[in-house]
Amino acid sequence: MFKRPERLGTGEGAGIIAAYLAANLVMAVLIWVSARRIAPRIRIPRSYLLSAILVFCVAGSHAINTSFIDVRTMLGFGVVGLARESARVPLGPFVIGVGLTPIAEVQLRAAMMMSGDDPSAILTRPFAMGFLTLALLTLAWPGLAARRARRNIANQTE
C-alpha cells in the first residue's frame, strides 16, 4: 500500500556537498582578492545611498502584495525606527524583547490557567519573585547609578 522512498546511495550526496564546498572556497578567494580593489571605489555620498535604499524599500514592500498599505506600514515602522534611533534606545534588548515576548505570553497564560486566574499565586513562588526582583533592579539600576554619580560629583565639589 505504502511505497517506501528510495534512499540515496553513498556517493550521490557527497558530490553535492563537495560542489557546495568548492563554490564557497572559490567565493571566499574572490571576495578576499577583490574587496581591497572595490572598496575605495564605493565611496558613495550618504544622501545618495539612503535615497536609493528608500526607493528599493518602497518598491520591495509594494511588490510583495501590490498594496500601498504595505508601503505605509513600512514607512510607519521606519518612523518608529528613526524615533528609536534618535532616543538612543539600544537595538539588542529591543530585538530580544520582540523575540521572547510570544514565549513569555504563552507561559504566563499557562500559569494563569493553572492558578485559576489568580496572579498572586504566581508571585508567591520563589523563582518568580526572584526573577521579578531581578527585573525591577535591572530597570532601576540606571537611575540609581546616575543618582550616585551626581552625589559623588556634588561631594567632590564641596
Results as ranks from 00 to 15, higher is better:
119 P>Y: 06
158 E>Q: 14
132 L>M: 13
117 D>M: 09
57 C>I: 04
114 M>E: 05
33 V>I: 14
86 S>A: 10
128 A>D: 00
48 Y>G: 07
138 T>H: 14
40 P>N: 08
20 Y>N: 12
21 L>H: 07
114 M>V: 02
32 W>F: 07
28 A>K: 10
47 S>W: 15
88 R>G: 06
118 D>Y: 01
149 A>R: 13
139 L>Y: 10
49 L>W: 02
105 E>T: 05
36 R>V: 05
112 M>V: 06
156 Q>F: 11
74 M>A: 03
18 A>R: 06
155 N>I: 04
54 L>G: 06
16 I>R: 15
119 P>S: 03
158 E>V: 09
12 E>G: 14
72 R>N: 04
145 A>D: 07
94 F>C: 06
20 Y>R: 14
75 L>S: 01
4 R>T: 07
51 S>Q: 10
91 L>H: 11
37 R>L: 12
8 L>T: 12
89 V>Y: 04
131 F>E: 05
102 P>E: 03
116 G>P: 01
68 F>T: 06
43 R>V: 12
56 F>G: 01
102 P>Q: 06
125 R>M: 13
134 L>N: 10
90 P>R: 04
153 I>Y: 11
95 V>H: 02
101 T>C: 05
134 L>E: 08
131 F>A: 04
12 E>V: 09
127 F>A: 11
50 L>F: 11
113 M>Y: 14
92 G>R: 12
15 G>W: 06
24 N>F: 13
158 E>Y: 13
60 G>P: 03
153 I>A: 15
63 A>H: 10
65 N>R: 15
25 L>S: 11
70 D>Q: 05
43 R>G: 07
93 P>W: 11
107 Q>N: 12
151 R>P: 00
84 R>T: 10
71 V>Y: 00
80 V>K: 01
30 L>V: 05
102 P>M: 08
131 F>H: 05
59 A>V: 02
118 D>P: 01
27 M>K: 10
58 V>C: 03
82 L>I: 00
152 N>L: 14
74 M>F: 05
48 Y>N: 13
27 M>Y: 09
122 I>M: 07
150 R>Q: 09
24 N>A: 13
43 R>L: 07
51 S>F: 03
64 I>G: 02
90 P>E: 08
83 A>G: 01
89 V>W: 00
28 A>Q: 08
52 A>P: 02
13 G>N: 10
14 A>H: 07
95 V>Y: 01
65 N>K: 12
6 E>V: 12
104 A>K: 09
18 A>L: 05
95 V>T: 07
113 M>V: 13
2 F>K: 15
142 P>Y: 02
154 A>L: 11
118 D>S: 03
36 R>L: 03
113 M>E: 15
66 T>A: 15
78 G>M: 04
140 A>G: 04
96 I>R: 10
49 L>F: 10
59 A>D: 00
